[in-house]
Amino acid sequence: MLKWKDILKLAREGNLAPDHKLQKSIRAWREILDDEVFAITRLSATERPFSSEMCVAFTPGRYACTCCEQVLFDSGQKFESASGWPSFDQPLASNAIAYFADESHGMQRIEVKCNVCDAHLGHVFPDGKTESGLRYCINGKAITFAAN
Rank of each mutant, 00 (worst) to 15 (best):
M1D: 05
L2P: 02
K5Y: 07
I7V: 15
K9R: 12
R12N: 11
R12V: 01
R12D: 15
R12I: 00
G14K: 06
G14A: 04
G14L: 08
N15V: 15
A17N: 12
P18S: 07
D19Q: 09
H20M: 07
H20T: 07
K24S: 04
R27Y: 00
A28G: 03
W29N: 11
R30C: 00
R30N: 12
R30L: 01
D34H: 13
F38E: 08
F38A: 13
F38H: 12
F38C: 08
I40Y: 05
S44K: 15
A45S: 15
A45C: 12
T46P: 01
T46S: 12
P49H: 12
F50A: 03
F50I: 03
S52N: 07
E53K: 06
M54D: 03
V56A: 06
A57L: 09
F58R: 05
F58W: 06
T59H: 08
G61I: 01
G61H: 01
R62D: 05
Y63R: 00
Y63I: 01
Y63F: 14
T66P: 03
C68V: 10
E69T: 14
V71L: 00
V71P: 01
L72Q: 03
L72Y: 03
F73K: 02
F73D: 01
F73R: 03
D74E: 04
F79S: 02
E80C: 05
E80D: 13
A82M: 15
S83W: 06
W85L: 14
P86A: 10
P86R: 05
F88T: 02
D89P: 03
D89F: 09
Q90F: 01
N95F: 08
A96Y: 02
A96Q: 02
Y99D: 02
F100P: 00
F100V: 01
D102Y: 07
G106N: 12
G106A: 08
R109K: 11
R109T: 12
I110H: 07
K113C: 12
K113H: 12
N115T: 02
N115Q: 07
D118T: 14
D118H: 12
D118V: 03
A119Q: 04
G122H: 08
H123A: 05
H123L: 03
V124W: 03
V124F: 08
V124R: 01
F125Q: 10
G128S: 11
T130E: 14
T130Q: 13
T130I: 09
E131N: 05
S132Q: 06
G133S: 08
G133E: 10
G133N: 10
L134F: 15
L134R: 12
L134H: 06
Y136G: 04
N139F: 09
N139T: 11
G140H: 08
G140M: 10
G140P: 10
I143F: 07
I143W: 05
A146C: 07
A147S: 11
